[in-house]
Design a protein around this nucleic acid. Structure first.
Lengths: 204, 204
DNA sequence: GCACAAACGGGGTGGTCCTCCATATCGTAC
DNA sequence: GTACGATATGGAGGACCACCCCGTTTGTGC
């Protein structure tokens, strides 16, 4: 982040080769991450993109920045889905559907769960508008509506739910039938282990 | 694994220095893992133990083997807890209590969740009797009893439950109030997001 | 005490992440 | 069309890592 120059002009427009390299790196990263997961080698990504490793590090000072760039599109899609579902007549169902969509995206896009998870708590405030924050804001409305409709406990937060979804996604990542497992576990977590219809309130 | 020698005698008793080094490595690993997590540097562990890195690799051919050795005691304790709880009058409560104990152990012993998680699906059959298997066998009884008592759905497996617990434990690992978060999320997953007493069966 | 299998560990290989800085390139003002 | 300066580049190098080879040391049964 260059210090705001003295003139009103925003320093300079990004150079064309820089923009080109940026895009090539993101593309290469998407491939490598799909293949090897979120911990894919940065050296290899640079190699695939045909740039020096220093260039990669200049464009993306941390792995998290790179993940954010790779998955921004997917995250925006999930946010849009949340917006669509916000007006659904059954808010509880809408929330569950959306969380399922998050899990499905994570199952089909290796590394997405890590990108969603990492955002806030790695001490870098410059990632404020990152995927983590975006997805939380998107889900907050759905949860609020569900709560109003009595379909969600008042003491559960959207952070809880997304942590759960991402934890599940990470746990089954790499498994052959990951998407199925993730769906099972998410349903389990949302509805509880007790048989449906058993309303017993226990001390636990 | 030395090929079974021609004689009936089990080749040879382990040499004293080997046993000593083994123990020093496990101790050093416990410290390092508590400090840096399950991904702690093996070189550093060898350094702390005062042995060459080759010695560490000879004793523990993979990181998973080392984790198993470090946490075997804790896992046995959890298995014993499971055995104690097996006769509890309320099997549903017993199961929940035990899963809570697993989470609590994981929160207090960094790396334990990783040890429990890694066991089966990394292609090494020699880890058959590893922590993963031990804990599954221990929990299976509790789940079976809970199911008989109608306190657990018939379609949920012990693997599901342990995956959930470990996923949660890994997700909150390193967080300042990790133990509290893990407890919250586990309770949430076990009882569902709907308010207690809401027995509505939804299509979802 | 001796012989020998068992265990050891220094040092090498090839990998990672990240940084420095001399060089090449782009965009612009002329 | 050219020259210039800011911007961007990438190879080389440092620090670290997992893992392995192989000459050397050490423990043990006789």
């Amino acid at each position: 982040m260059p210090p705001a120059s003295r003139t009103t002009s925003p320093s300079r427009p990004t150079r064309a080769d820089a923009r080109r390299n940026h895009d090539r790196i993101v593309t290469a990263a998407a491939d490598a991450i799909a293949e090897h997961g979120a911990e894919a080698s940065l050296e290899e990504i640079a190699r695939r993109a045909g740039v020096g490793s220093a260039t990669l590090h200049r464009h993306f000072p941390s792995r998290q920045h790179l993940l954010e760039a790779v998955f921004r599109g997917k995250v925006e899609a999930l946010c849009a889905t949340a917006a669509d579902l916000a007006g659904h007549p059954d808010p509880g169902h809408a929330l569950a559907t959306w969380l399922g969509a998050v899990a499905r995206h994570a199952a089909h896009n290796r590394g997405l769960a890590a990108a969603l998870m990492g955002g806030a708590h790695d001490g870098d405030p410059t990632l404020g508008a990152g995927c983590h924050t975006m997805i939380i804001n998107a889900g907050a409305d759905l949860l609020a509506h569900a709560r109003e409709a009595g379909a969600a406990r008042p003491d559960v937060s959207i952070t809880d739910l997304l942590t759960l979804v991402n934890a599940i996604s990470l746990a089954v990542e790499g498994e052959p039938d990951g998407a199925v497992q993730a769906g099972r576990l998410l349903t389990l977590a949302l509805t509880g282990v007790r048989p449906a219809g058993d309303a017993a309130e226990r001390a636990m």
